[in-house]
Design a protein around this nucleic acid. Structure first.
Lengths: 153, 153
DNA sequence: ACGATATAGTTGCAGATGCAATCAAATGTT
DNA sequence: AACATTTGATTGCATCTGCAACTATATCGT
């Protein structure tokens, strides 16, 4: 109702709703750009990008899941798809035979390099350029802090 | 590779990754709390909340979709489910016979009121309390601005 | 007034996701 | 050494989602 539920004050509400809608807006637009220009989703791009940051372009599945903000089963399937299209390979881990590495293939590197151009341009255009230096610095610190897991009381 | 792709500088990267992980962290924890305590998802809560903000607790489907940051088809199904469990009703629009209103039922209001307590507490605990006044104000303005649709060049 | 176009909403379908169960390998306990 | 527990990863299943196609109604242009 019009009467309703307003137990966050104005600034608090704007910050929270802003988080939801800014994320949605940015995610959708960056996703759409990558799909349109390079035929990969943002989710796939993230997996390639985080893989490229590991030793020799290879990362353990669990680290990858954590970095890509997805469940392990979700990651398994994303990687399955990227393997199917030749951008990643699996390699069994020798020290721990339960483990698996995802490894970038040459094609994967090529695709990543190309997509990164588009992606970075998009982040600049839709996010960075809309913020002042101070805002950017504040966002960086504040959002990082919010990302830390909360202790449940 | 370690060599890789670092075309956003440190602050820019922290802000962008912070957005992704803060959103993920907050969304998941608030969603989980609502499910555990009240048996409704955050997505459903959002629909109830936005419905309650309309005239007499009723809102057109399209407005609701926009407010809840979901596609129209996605909204149709969320509402279908909330109708099935008795929290919403549909009402045909008399001025425009194509249109449909979603209307809160007494049960829906009750559930919303209860869930809102949990939700607001969660937002305070996991977000607001972790930010200074200045940070909160900056986030509110900056995120709101980022949420505005970009003009495509 | 009439056909063309636009808008509100729903549905079929295919893809993505997470949870719980499962399997295999590693680690801890006695 | 034998057994229990934990950990890495995958799979079955149910759910959620968006796109494209479709229906019904409204509006525009002539």
């Amino acid at each position: 109702m019009a009467i309703g539920i307003q137990w966050l004050n104005d600034v608090e509400m704007r910050a929270w709703r802003g988080m939801l809608s800014a994320h949605s807006q940015l995610y959708n637009i960056l996703d759409e750009e990558l799909i349109r220009v390079h035929g990969i989703t943002f989710a796939e791009f993230e997996v390639l990008a985080h893989t490229s940051e590991g030793e020799g372009g290879s990362v353990r599945m669990s680290s990858l899941a954590e970095a890509a903000l997805v469940s392990r089963s979700g990651l398994t399937r994303r990687v399955q798809h990227l393997v199917a299209v030749g951008m990643l390979e699996r390699r069994r881990c020798k020290e721990d035979k339960r483990g698996t590495f995802a490894v970038l293939t040459p094609l994967g590197m090529e695709k990543l390099r190309a997509a990164a151009v588009t992606h970075v341009k998009g982040v600049r255009q839709h996010m960075i350029s809309k913020l002042s230096r101070e805002e950017l610095a504040t966002l960086a610190c504040a959002l990082e802090r919010l990302a830390e897991p909360s202790n449940k009381p």
